[in-house]
Design a protein around this nucleic acid. Structure first.
Lengths: 340, 340
DNA sequence: TTATTTTTGACGTACGTTCGTCAATATATG
DNA sequence: CATATATTGACGAACGTACGTCAAAAATAA
């Protein structure tokens, strides 16, 4: 009736507890024939390790390290906060946060190379794309440390998983919304990016234009305006553009700098107010949603991202299987009325 | 360095392990003065029970019972499926599902009265609103069984929590979307409900009209069409209405019967296609999103609802504190492009 | 065959908690 | 004061697993 234990496995396999333990924990000195007998017994009984008991016994601590970009980025600081609170509340888990300068691949690679396997079991990093980082990541993995990328991925590297949203999908969603918002109103659509050199932004733009071209072919998109995620620059350039182009009926801001977008729009007369879609729910974008400046916010749930990351790292450290469903981070849509 | 244990608590309080245990598990025979000493030591040390060890020791099993409406309701059957799979995967937990006829408060009250405290620790129910059910719930709680409502709440009853979405908010969100979709296109908006006698539907309508009236005062809403959550009836009545009213530019279906909505719309010429917002992501509504029949789907995440419910019940059974953040179920918005 | 190495078993202790029993106090009651 | 009752302590076994030590058995090499 109750779950089988290693005792049952030992009995069925006709070996001792010690041997089952050796097999289970990958210790050496067991003939492969015996290993197979044990594996067969495990399969037959449907045995699953009691992780609570295992952790209790080995006094396991999952020591995790999060490497995040530093600076005043609201989004990243929110992420950091999540890491601290969530890891603190979790059994057997300690998480440390290190920050490295944003977009500095050398600093990131350095940080990765200085991770001590003696005191760290798993690492989560917001990746900057470079060969340097790829190499450092490979070294890290070679030390037996689990590694996942968070928010920003590093494809074809040694990272074991990526936790974050699909940015192409995010761009498509924005287009799907903005296209409908502007469908029956003649005019053009403006795009505000941080920099097209950043992978996430490029992907979002790609998805946005895909959908707008195919689903709303009447709507013309102006060339993207680069604001370098800086609210001042975004505000100035967008104000200029709106003065130059009187027929802008929609704006998609796919990077940071939401306050700049809000400022530029505030200067327009009410009848010229465009429909606006931006990224990331923050105190500022929330306020803009509530006062009607923004129509929709595309969001990624950082709390969930951290939670998934921690669980993923724990599973990887334990060598457990991972359910691919549970780790999906969805592209969320917020309007004024479904704000959490 | 490591977490304090009951041994530490005993030492600091100057009592024995047994006494700490008695206090911790609410057993009788401890002077209140001693209880206070122990409580003080716990507070001072920041002691938290090691749940893994506790469960291991007491061979705790959380025996949960889910009481759901029966019948062919896709949504409820999906919920049931979630319960079975999630509880199966969870440590120390067994969940049983009982179905009772939908909207039958007597049957629900009966089911509640027949719950055996010997073999059930917690109950989750999709509530039907009636005094009868309230009374049965009070009896259930008197037996020491934890109880939460799921999807449909029963306010001012003995239920300890509610897990589900805010339906007024859901209606507001629908209006926010549909209002924007139809903003620049003259015409009227149709409402398809199941029955106004059902609490959820009434709440959704309320929220919808709130926002439409205040935020999109130009848009006129037709009187709601009652489809009794039956796709045939919905299809027929909506087809009739669309024939009668040639200026319908938007449809909000706030109950079930999505297939009927899709059928009615399919018969319209493309240029008359209204914007459509419905509830619940199912294989049918997903398909309609993908082929462009529906523009948006308001959704509640059943997997998350079940997860939260199980965790909540476990916490209630253990008498643990509950973080109010973690149990929120959001009103989710799905477009063709952010489908999971 | 014997010596050597590899593989396995037996056993004990530990993790933090629960829970039961029995004895030793302390406190209240008459 | 003696007795009854309430409160506390000491102890041990158990939950399922990890891990270390030592010895026994089996397989392999010489």
């Amino acid at each position: 009736m109750s779950r089988p234990t290693i005792h049952d496995v030992a009995r069925v396999a006709g070996v001792s507890l010690s041997t089952v333990d050796r097999v289970l924990n990958g210790r050496e000195g067991v003939k492969s024939a015996t290993q197979n007998r044990v594996a067969e017994a495990i399969r037959q009984l449907g045995y699953e390790r009691n992780i609570a008991a295992a952790n209790l016994s080995r006094k396991r601590r999952y020591r995790l390290l999060f490497i995040l970009p530093g600076g005043g980025n609201t989004f990243m600081r929110g992420l950091e906060q999540e890491v601290v609170t969530q890891a603190g509340a979790r059994e057997f888990t300690t998480a440390t946060v290190t920050t490295v300068p944003a977009f500095d691949d050398t600093a990131l690679a350095d940080a990765l190379r200085h991770v001590d396997p003696q005191e760290t079991d798993g690492v989560a990093l917001v990746a900057t794309d470079s060969a340097n980082v790829r190499a450092a990541l490979a070294e890290l993995r070679a030390k037996g440390i689990a590694a996942v990328t968070l928010v920003s991925d590093l494809p074809s590297s040694q990272r074991q998983r990526f936790v974050g949203i699909d940015n192409v999908q995010a761009g498509r969603t924005a287009a799907s919304l903005l296209g409908r918002f502007c469908r029956w109103r003649p005019g053009r659509i403006a795009l505000v990016a941080g920099s097209m050199l950043v992978r996430d932004h490029a992907e979002r733009r790609l998805g946005f234009e895909q959908v707008l071209r195919s689903e709303f072919p009447d709507q013309e998109v102006l060339p993207p305006l680069e604001g370098f995620d800086d609210q001042e620059i975004v505000g100035d350039r967008l104000t200029d553009m709106l003065a130059r182009e009187p027929d802008v009926v929609g704006i998609y801001s796919l990077g940071a700098g939401n306050r700049g977008v809000a400022r530029a729009i505030a200067s327009l007369p009410p009848e010229r107010r465009p429909s606006v879609v931006v990224h990331e729910l923050t105190p500022y974008s929330r306020e803009a949603l509530l006062d009607g400046t923004f129509d929709a916010v595309i969001h990624q749930d950082t709390a969930r991202e951290v939670k998934v990351t921690v669980e993923l790292l724990q599973a990887l450290i334990d060598g457990m299987s991972i359910d691919p469903e549970g780790q999906r981070i969805g592209v969320e849509v917020y309007l004024r009325d479904n704000l959490p």
